[in-house]
Design a binder for these strands. Structure first.
Lengths: 243, 243
DNA sequence: CGCTCGGTTGAAGGAGGTCAACTCCGGTGG
DNA sequence: CCACCGGAGTTGACCTCCTTCAACCGAGCG
């Protein structure tokens, strides 16, 4: 029923660093089944003690945090291959929630065996550290956007970043379009903007043909212009670890 | 000359989780001397390939990132015990710079022996992952502030957070004051606000006796009010690992 | 003694927020 | 088959929080 790790479709994208067959068989034994979540539902609720670890196998999701006044900040978007559950100390309250944008499948891992992973497979332990560090990098980038960029720049940045990430896991089709299940409300919550202003700025950029969003798919029209607008110099993200 | 890890003053604060004497002696061998930086200078320059790892032993610093237009975002403030160098893959360009607020001392670690750490001391590897995850948590919190809170709330949040962190590493004196070497420009850069507006909002809050900043020291006047204003429910940060 | 750095204050303008109404579209159920 | 509904997107008017520009103060220091 479940996808065997040895046949993991994500590894075939070439976006991830290879592992030995021994490591993969440990990962397989570490895996405790798959979790299916329907679009719009939660994988992790804020403030709940869970201590579960997941890898997003298929679909899109996002990690967020809500304030007392009801405002929500999306911390980052999750694409296939992203690891979830390192944000808090295991066994404490989840500081952020995870909600799913499309129907999604997660691989669930046994947090009790995490210690065994570190003990018997130090290379995988190293990988997990690397994953945590890499995720911080993404949040760093978002913080720079929200703190210092104008609305148009933030949107340009988000579009570019998501396009690149989707492309890297093999989501680009023959026409150069990638799936884009993100509503304007999600963009607003991620960028610290109001929905209305997000809409108006978005409209301006699409009028300039910088990119197109239609039927939950996105294409980039003017990559150079968009990069310049966003003031963004991307580093290629290849060869990151996958658990 | 250098402080021996077995006598590390940070461990005496009780803010960090204990290690076995064997682990501490490995950390000692992992340590490659101390680095002294004068107030206002850089430990790490943005974009430079270094691959060094550090722990801040004494003083204050901050991690930041600069945009093409010269604007700067402070990503987080660094206090004693904070680990530096996980933000990028070892041996690649530093994505963020580290600048020092006060004269500071860092323990430098050998990145070549990091692999040995994971192999021979899995518990320390686990700790490093935990440190990376914890640091992401702090950046998350900053992102929530900058994205969703008003200027007054952001300042309240920053004050509370820094006070709590300084207190946790034993910096509080008999009068309840902690060092506060942060200028208004630094606060502005961390909170995504202009200097002028930071100043005016700060003045309003101090007029309400919420806190006092004088001679680079800070005291909190109304913790309850401040907490309510910031919409911030702090979790106690004790028992985090120290390398 | 003058310079620089950090902090303070006032005035004016703009980027973005809020409120409100309307469209479009895909269900879903009579 | 059509009516109804809710979610997403669009647009206009108004307002405000915050930025920008500019000037000034005080303290430390070469």
């Amino acid at each position: 029923m479940d996808v065997p790790c040895a046949d993991c479709p994500l590894r075939k994208t070439g976006a991830f660093s290879p592992n030995t067959t021994e490591e993969i068989s440990f990962i397989q034994s570490f895996k405790r089944g798959e979790v299916n979540i329907k679009a719009g539902n939660l994988l992790v609720r804020e403030g709940v003690i869970s201590g579960e670890l997941y890898t997003l196998l298929r679909g899109w999701a996002f990690r967020y945090r809500t304030l007392g006044n009801g405002k929500r900040q999306i911390l980052n978007f999750l694409l296939p291959g992203d690891f979830i559950g390192l944000q808090e100390r295991l066994g404490t309250q989840a500081s952020s929630g995870v909600e799913v944008l499309t129907d999604a499948v997660f691989c669930r891992f046994s947090s009790e065996r995490l210690w065994e992973l570190y003990r018997n497979h130090p290379a995988l332990g190293y990988d997990i550290t690397w994953i945590a560090a890499h995720e911080e990098l993404i949040v760093d980038e978002n913080l720079v956007s929200v703190g210092q960029r104008s609305a148009a720049q933030r949107i340009a940045m988000l579009i570019l970043h998501l396009y690149k990430r989707a492309e890297s896991v093999g989501m680009k089709d023959a026409e150069g379009a990638v799936p884009f299940p993100v509503t304007q409300q999600h963009m607003a919550d991620a960028l610290g903007l109001s929905l209305v202003h997000t809409n108006k700025t978005l409209a301006q950029l699409t009028r300039q043909r910088m990119f197109t969003i239609r039927n939950s798919r996105m294409t980039i029209g003017e990559p150079a212009l968009l990069n310049k607008l966003a003031d963004y110099f991307s580093v290629p993200l290849r060869g990151r670890p996958l658990i």
